[in-house]
Amino acid sequence: MKVIFLKDVKGKGKKGEIKNVPDGYARNFLFKKGLAIEATPANLKELE
């Protein structure tokens, strides 16, 4: 799953980066803790 990092996550990504991460990791950790959001076309446009 492609995500946009909202905060730095040690060993995974830095704020503003767009990366592919495992689906479970994104849903169960990154999204729940507010560390990242899904890289949807709308979210990507908002980032620019």
Rank of each mutant, 00 (worst) to 15 (best):
M1D: 03
M1L: 15
M1W: 05
M1P: 03
M1N: 03
M1V: 08
M1F: 08
M1R: 08
K2I: 14
K2D: 10
K2F: 15
K2V: 14
K2H: 09
K2E: 11
K2T: 15
K2N: 12
V3N: 00
V3Y: 01
V3M: 02
V3G: 00
V3R: 00
V3E: 00
V3F: 00
V3P: 00
I4G: 00
I4F: 08
I4L: 11
I4H: 02
I4W: 03
I4R: 03
F5G: 01
F5A: 00
F5M: 03
F5W: 03
F5D: 00
F5L: 07
F5N: 00
F5E: 00
L6T: 08
L6G: 00
L6W: 02
L6Y: 03
L6D: 01
L6E: 01
K7D: 06
K7F: 14
K7V: 14
K7P: 00
K7R: 13
K7W: 09
D8R: 04
D8Q: 04
D8G: 05
D8L: 05
D8A: 07
D8H: 08
V9S: 02
V9H: 02
V9G: 01
K10G: 08
K10Q: 12
K10F: 14
K10I: 12
K10Y: 14
K10W: 15
K10D: 11
K10H: 13
K10L: 13
K10P: 15
G11S: 07
G11F: 11
G11R: 05
G11M: 05
G11Q: 05
G11W: 07
K12L: 15
K12H: 15
K12V: 15
K12D: 06
G13Y: 13
G13E: 02
G13T: 03
G13S: 04
G13R: 01
G13F: 14
G13P: 00
K14R: 13
K14V: 11
K14H: 09
K14Q: 10
K14P: 01
K14E: 06
K15F: 06
K15I: 09
K15V: 09
K15D: 03
K15E: 06
K15P: 04
G16Q: 03
G16V: 00
G16I: 01
G16R: 03
G16S: 04
G16N: 08
E17F: 03
E17N: 04
E17S: 06
E17R: 02
E17D: 13
E17A: 05
E17M: 06
E17V: 04
I18P: 01
I18F: 03
I18N: 02
K19N: 04
K19Q: 08
K19M: 08
K19P: 01
K19D: 04
K19Y: 07
N20I: 15
N20M: 15
N20A: 12
N20K: 12
N20Q: 13
V21D: 01
V21P: 00
V21S: 02
V21Q: 05
V21I: 09
P22N: 11
P22R: 10
P22G: 08
P22I: 07
P22S: 10
P22V: 06
D23W: 13
D23G: 12
D23H: 14
G24P: 10
G24H: 14
G24D: 15
G24R: 14
Y25N: 04
Y25R: 05
Y25D: 05
Y25Q: 05
Y25M: 06
Y25S: 04
Y25I: 07
Y25E: 06
Y25T: 05
A26G: 04
A26Q: 06
A26N: 02
A26K: 02
A26W: 08
A26V: 08
A26Y: 12
A26T: 07
A26F: 13
R27H: 11
R27K: 13
R27W: 12
R27T: 10
N28E: 14
N28F: 12
N28T: 08
N28K: 10
N28H: 13
N28S: 09
N28I: 06
F29P: 01
F29K: 03
F29I: 11
F29Q: 06
F29E: 09
F29D: 07
L30N: 00
L30M: 03
L30W: 02
L30D: 00
L30H: 00
F31G: 01
F31V: 07
F31K: 03
F31Q: 02
F31I: 14
F31A: 01
F31M: 08
F31H: 01
K32A: 11
K32G: 06
K32I: 12
K32N: 07
K32M: 11
K32W: 07
K32L: 13
K32D: 06
K32F: 07
K33P: 02
K33T: 10
K33N: 15
K33L: 15
K33I: 08
K33Q: 12
K33E: 10
K33W: 15
G34Y: 07
G34M: 09
G34S: 05
L35M: 09
L35D: 02
L35S: 03
L35T: 02
L35V: 04
L35A: 04
L35P: 00
A36N: 00
A36G: 04
I37G: 02
I37D: 01
I37V: 13
I37L: 10
I37Y: 05
I37M: 14
I37W: 06
I37Q: 08
E38R: 11
E38Y: 07
E38I: 07
E38D: 04
E38F: 04
E38P: 14
A39H: 06
A39T: 02
A39S: 04
A39I: 05
A39N: 03
A39K: 02
T40N: 09
T40K: 06
T40H: 06
T40E: 05
T40P: 05
P41G: 09
P41A: 14
P41L: 12
P41V: 13
P41Q: 12
A42G: 13
A42P: 08
A42Y: 09
A42V: 10
A42F: 09
A42T: 10
A42K: 12
A42W: 07
N43D: 07
N43R: 06
N43W: 07
N43E: 06
N43Q: 08
L44M: 11
L44I: 14
L44E: 06
L44A: 06
K45A: 14
K45F: 12
K45Q: 12
K45N: 10
E46A: 15
E46N: 12
E46K: 10
E46M: 10
E46Y: 11
E46F: 13
L47Q: 11
L47D: 06
L47S: 08
L47I: 13
L47N: 09
L47F: 14
L47A: 09
E48K: 06
E48F: 12
